[in-house]
């Protein structure tokens, strides 16, 4: 009897699983592509592909191609195989830009994201009242780096008329320091200026993550007697980590490619103390017009961007099928 019941149950399970599999296949079949759909699909995505090809793929391929040529000014290009790359890594000026870029990128990202994250937590306790504050911070993110650069020139002027020197002068009369001219402070001043514009995005992303936390979780914490600091540390901060990760990713890429603010504030100086790979690339390509050499630096920068981007993109899109 037991055997009959067991056999019957097994048969029922097998039928059920077979039915589910069949339904799934049917569903997949209806969701799948039919050969007849392909022309329409290609036609629909063709404009994007063409634009992408012109604006991204062609310049990219051309840059990589140029990096194998020695081009000086308007002279004829000479194929040098990997010569530009060999020279690049032997060039003390380029090696210096690697460490400067690393410091600038990590510091700018750390300052922007940590301040943005902290402000997002604080704003979450009074979302309505802090709206103008959040808008102001986000507006800074929207300001062109060139405009921000000129604003920071006013702040960091070397004489006592500079805003920062004037502020310190209230405590130490007659104080003046050439923040951007002193190699010991130039990179720090540049990091502060670049971070200022970068706070808005982490603030908004982290704030949105906190807003997505179910209200019941926060209410339960209140009822259990958690203090605002404990709620922030144990609930809001951990649950806003996805937003922080996106902010880190975006800020890292932005800092790695930074150019405008460096161009305006320091021009890579003093004595190349603030020259990043991005600025080096510009200097070699546009002021010295060594297009091949500059292209090799661009490819190195591109590789760095890809090293950061690919894992992040894989992680962000892992769930998509």
């Amino acid at each position: 009897m037991h055997e009959t019941v067991a056999a019957s149950a097994t048969a029922t399970d097998a039928e059920r699983s077979s039915r589910v599999a069949g339904e799934r296949r049917k569903l997949l079949a209806t969701r799948g592509w039919r050969i007849g759909d392909w022309p329409a699909a290609w036609l629909l995505i063709a404009p994007v592909l063409v634009l992408f090809g012109i604006a991204v793929v062609y310049p990219l391929v051309e840059t990589i191609r140029l990096s194998f040529f020695d081009i000086k000014g308007l002279g004829k290009p000479k194929y040098v195989e990997l010569g530009n790359y060999v020279r690049l890594f032997a060039d003390p000026a380029f090696r210096n830009t690697i460490s400067t870029t690393l410091i600038f990128t990590v510091a700018t990202t750390f300052v922007s994201v940590s301040i943005g994250w902290l402000l997002a937590m604080l704003c979450s306790f009074a979302p309505r009242q802090t709206l103008p504050f959040r808008v102001m911070f986000f507006a800074a993110f929207g300001i062109s780096e060139a405009v921000a650069g000129y604003m920071w020139i006013g702040i960091l002027r070397p004489d006592s008329a500079g805003l920062l020197n004037a502020a310190i002068g209230l405590i130490i009369p007659g104080f003046s320091h050439p923040w951007l001219g002193d190699p010991n402070t130039a990179l720090g001043a540049l990091i502060v200026a670049a971070s200022w514009g970068g706070v808005g995005l982490p603030l908004m992303l982290c704030f949105a993550s906190v807003q997505a936390i179910p209200r019941t979780v926060l209410e339960a914490a209140y009822l259990d007697g958690a203090t605002p600091t404990q709620i922030m540390r144990n609930i809001m901060m951990p649950l806003s980590l996805p937003g922080v990760r996106v902010a880190i990713f975006i800020n890292l890429l932005g800092a790695l490619r930074a150019f405008d603010i460096i161009f305006i504030l320091t021009g890579g100086g003093p004595v190349r103390a603030t020259e990043t790979v991005g600025y080096f690339m510009y200097r070699e390509s546009m002021t010295q017009f060594k297009l091949g050499y500059g292209a090799a630096a661009t490819v190195v920068l591109l590789a760095a961007v890809l090293i950061i981007s690919i894992p992040a993109i894989i992680q962000r899109t892992a769930g998509a099928r």
């Binding site: 070397p158 004489d159 008329a161 050439p178 951007l180 001219g181 002193d182 190699p183 003093p270």
Partner: peptide
Amino acid sequence: GDPATMLANEWDAASDSVFKAKT
């Protein structure tokens, strides 16, 4: 003056120091 101040300025700022700020 201080080399850092020289390195912070370009010719136009130097010109300002003579004709505008009078330093």
